[in-house]
Design a protein around this nucleic acid. Structure first.
Lengths: 88, 88, 88, 88
DNA sequence: TCGCCTGATAGTTGCC
DNA sequence: GGCAACTATCAGGCGA
């Protein structure tokens, strides 16, 4: 573990606090998301369906990203890498 | 399911977009957290231990919150509620 | 926990053994898979690419399953469920 | 990458199919394991505890294997190898 | 060969 | 109270 000066104590404290702060914000966003679903439900939407729609769109995204990654892997395997394909 | 006017389509779109936006931010925070752990590691801290520390503190917090909630329940039952106990 | 006769001891033992047996077989399959990748490599294939291909195909599958699930969710939400869509 | 004859295509297909088949079986075993845990639960066992037991036994095993390996290393260094120590 | 990083797995939490 | 989604942990593979 890091050297045993009192300095380390301060570093540790700082790190822990930053992490906890970020996790707090993350949890808050989770709560926000749940809230939006709740609002959707109140407006007559079926939450399960809504979740599936979101999930499906996410799958689409991963699919596209995977295809891109596959292409780059091919290029790399063929020794043709290096910022190979512009995104536009 | 919500009424089938075109309005619903707009609502749905809006909901999905809000959710996706929030999930994006949430994911970004996850990345930030990972980054902090990385920084910790670079400073010689053991990530696994650090995680344990954070997790333990979280447990402590929820225990304290639970006890706090119980206390407030008692106070409320006694007709003595209202920002009853400062945390410091 | 379950009643304290000696019987329970036997049940427990049996459960643990079944689980351990299954996990062993599972680990063996993991080894087999690694072996196939190794064979692929020996035949000149790029493992990373191969993994991506497999992963991409898996994504395709999930995508299709998700779409099917979404459809069923819609049908259910509309009160039209019950073995709604044959797979053949 | 492997040579570009049509043969490669067949090899690739075969490899992917073998991998997918194995992964399928692996997933099936995972399902079996979950099923056993479910059965355990139905018989009044606490799943979390049960998992811990299995995990501990696994640790024991690897520790014992490690010790065994160390012992064999010593024996080998002393020119005394060959099925040296029975497990019972 | 070692360290990093991604993908797999187990545990936890929220929903029904 | 059971089930499913999500998060966090862990192990194996890849690159340096």
């Amino acid at each position: 573990m890091a050297d045993s000066t009192g300095l380390v104590r301060g570093q540790l404290r700082s790190l822990v606090e930053r992490i906890e702060r970020l996790e707090e914000e993350k949890a808050a966003l989770g709560a926000d998301i749940r809230e939006v679903y709740g609002e959707a439900k109140a407006n007559g939407f079926d939450i399960k369906t809504l979740r599936r729609v979101v999930s499906l769109r996410k799958l689409d995204t991963s699919q596209r990203e995977e295809e891109q990654a596959l292409l780059e892997t091919y290029l790399h395997a063929l020794g043709m890498a290096g910022e190979p394909v512009a995104d536009n």
